[in-house]
Amino acid sequence: MDIMKYVWCFVIGGAICVVGQILIDKTKLTSARILVLFVTVGVILTGLGLYQPLVDLAGSGATVPLTGFGYSLGKGVMKEVDEVGLLGVFTGGIKATAGGVAAAILFGFLAALIAKPKMKKQ
């Protein structure tokens, strides 16, 4: 078993979150803006070919943060363009991320039906 794979996963995943934390503490960005920013940056870095090496190195450490969601969008769209041409520009991104998005919508909906919001204890 390759232990270094897990070390890099932890370190890179943690480091990406640290970037988010610096933005929150220093620029007062809200969490919604952080998420939008990270997805967009992930797509762009993937398009430039800079994110794939990070995924090769850190696995889930690079795909679990929201930049990884951007990576899926970017990688998906390029793959689809290779396979079907121009139409792939529109279908590739959503196709590659459909599972996660559909799951989030369904589980989010079910959670709203079941859960009741409660006051934070602190």
């Binding site: 929150i24 809200t30 969490s31 919001p117 409660k118 006051m119």
Partner: peptide, 20 residues
């Protein structure tokens, strides 16, 4: 009321954010 004010002015109570 803490909850109705948070809901109107800030974030959902279940959102995992930090307060400065």
């Amino acid at each position: 009321h803490f909850c109705s004010a948070e809901k109107q002015f800030r974030f959902p109570l279940e959102l995992g954010n930090q307060r400065p």
